[in-house]
Design a protein around this nucleic acid. Structure first.
Length: 514
RNA sequence: GGCGACGUAGCUCAGUUGGUGAGAGCGCUCGACUCAUAAUCGAGAGGUCGACAGUUCAAAUCUGUCCGUCGCUACCA
């Protein structure tokens, strides 16, 4: 594949928009980091990347939280949205846009998209019946009730009938099935495949039409054809992905970006992204559908972190204090295979940090710099054209590239670190520290420096700050993140003749304070 | 209840479409080296791939049953 083919390709990647009432936690960070790393990889490939995250700010919960805080809903949302924005800044997230569902551009897009669905006959008026708690201002299904009373207020619920607009979800059963079952050659619908099967299961179980508006609350996007109603929060929130690339405002921009849209999300919201959202797009006549990348949960002691309370007990900021931004980023991406649930632990982060970052990568940079200083006069030599490490680098690159392409950051980093370990083995075998200055030691150290150059580029999506330190230490100009793959991964580009600097350890080993 | 996922070395996990004697990292034991962040390199111990039955020339990998754990079932990544 030449750069001419990939250069300028559009690539849109999104995180879910997070509910502003939540406090940013490691679960949010996990999703966002995966999307960030993939976005960074695509920038290396020369793609024109648009990476979107943001906050979901409508709904009853926000309205009520604002009242409790004595604030207007928008002011409340602005304050809480900021917590997400600042967390992403802390984690060095490279989003190109941060959307808030309270923005005028989003209201316009929601109204335009749902108006289309309405015009196409997929939205109709009907009544919603249910047991309603006046205090909660919410409906409950019978299973939630405690002795027929509201589970929160312990008061009798009232049977209410509300005028609602319904979305004809049931009309899309066949189209959804067809999309989910489409062959990989047509572009995947949902990956990994297990989640696609789950979505198929949801569709097979039968789809009911869903109520998508409310008259009982005001904090939302008004329904354009009936302003007594606002859209129910989910059906407004999902549309953010279309808003951000210009839906309803700039058709040309939308047409350019939309076809390359990829959503990263957790399995808990698969139903909305894998069934409701594509159906809404179909109803509005939008084509093609986005591609979904679904991950599992971080577990604590085998259970969902949000259940054990662990999710909010350990904050991203605390982990950054202990391991640095790159240490935290690396551990989150490396320790958890994208897709299945996986165990999260402090010890796991320590292991990833000490083993991979301190011992393997950081220490390699240190020992190479020192030997170059002693036996090469501090000047980094060029690599050998036919070095065996060159083949190892090519293999590692091919594996990593394939893994990034299929949104498997842990596998990509595994391949990258295998190359670094092979280089430590190579040095042990060559023993360049025993050699006298000359062509022999120059060749060995040139090869090692070349691996550091290539691996640093490959690792840059995960540890963007650290790789730039290594990049400078070995005397290179520019930045690792500005290189263009795949050309920059070709063996032999380290020029030689550069000044190599011995610096402080990039990742001082973490010693748990007991 | 319905739907689904998972159960592989002490720990955390990889194992495309079934096929060289079952792998990695960490931990552990022994050894080497001492350029390097008590780091690195080598060797080794350690597994009936949850259980049972079946399909097959051949299964950790397919089918069925069972046991165990977990998740979803309209707003928690």
């Amino acid at each position: 594949m030449s750069s001419a083919e990939t250069s300028g390709s559009k690539f849109v990647i999104t995180t879910p928009i997070y509910y502003v009432n939540d406090v940013p936690h490691v679960g949010h960070a996990y999703t966002t980091l995966n999307a960030d790393a993939v976005a960074r990889w695509h920038r290396l490939l020369g793609d024109d990347v648009f990476f979107l995250t943001g906050t979901d700010e409508h709904g009853l919960k926000v309205q009520r939280a604002a009242e409790e805080a004595g604030l207007e809903p928008l002011d409340h949302a602005t304050r809480t949205s900021e917590r997400f924005a600042s967390t992403w800044e802390l984690l060095n997230i490279s989003n190109d846009d941060f959307i808030r569902t309270t923005e005028p551009r989003h209201h316009a897009a929601v109204q335009a998209l749902l108006q289309k669905a309405y015009d196409n006959g997929y939205i109709y008026a009907d009544t919603y019946e249910g047991d309603y708690c006046v205090s909660c201002e919410a409906y409950y299904v019978e299973d939630d009730l405690v002795d027929g009373n509201c589970p929160i207020h312990k008061r009798p619920v009232e049977h209410m009938v509300e005028d609602n607009y319904f979305f004809k979800l049931s009309a899309f059963t066949d189209q959804l099935t067809e999309w989910l079952e489409q062959p990989e050659s047509a572009g995947h619908s949902i990956r990994p495949a297990g989640y696609r099967n789950e979505a198929l299961g949801i569709v097979r179980q039968g789809l009911d039409d869903v109520s998508i508006t409310r008259t009982s609350i005001s904090w939302g996007v008004p329904v354009p054809w009936d302003t007594d109603h606002v859209f129910y929060v989910w059906y407004d929130a999902l549309i953010n992905y279309a808003t951000a690339v210009g839906f309803g405002a700039d058709q040309q921009r939308f047409d350019q970006w939309w076809p390359s849209t990829h959503h990263v999300l957790g399995k808990d919201i698969l139903r909305f992204h894998g069934v409701y959202w594509p159906a809404m797009l179909m109803a509005a006549g939008i084509d093609p559908l986005p591609q979904l990348h679904v991950h599992g949960f971080l577990l604590l002691g085998g259970e969902k972190m949000s259940k054990t309370g662990g999710l909010t007990a350990i904050t991203p900021a605390e982990l950054v204090d202990d391991f640095g931004v790159d240490g935290f980023r690396y551990a989150m991406l490396r320790n958890h295979s994208f897709g299945p649930d996986s165990d999260f632990s402090f010890e796991g982060i320590v292991e990833a940090f000490n083993t991979d970052l301190a011992n393997t990568y950081g220490n390699l940079v240190s020992r190479v710099a020192t030997v170059v200083g002693k036996n090469c006069g501090g000047v980094g030599p060029a690599p050998e054209p036919g070095a065996s490490l060159g083949e190892a680098a090519a293999t590692a690159y091919a594996e990593a590239a394939a893994a990034w392409d299929s949104v498997q950051p842990s596998a990509a980093l595994d391949a990258t670190w295998r190359l670094l370990r092979e280089t430590n083995e190579y040095l042990a075998e060559m023993e360049p520290w025993k050699m006298d200055p000359g062509p022999e030691v120059d060749a060995v150290m040139g090869n090692a420096l070349e691996v550091i150059r290539i691996a640093s580029i490959m690792a840059s999506p995960a540890i963007p700050e650290a790789v730039e330190i290594a990049w400078k230490r070995i005397g290179l100009d520019g930045q690792a993140c500005q290189q263009r793959l795949p050309e920059a991964a070709v063996w032999g580009a380290y020029p030689g003749g550069l000044s190599v600097e011995v610096g402080d350890p990039m990742f001082p080993r973490f010693k748990p304070s007991s």
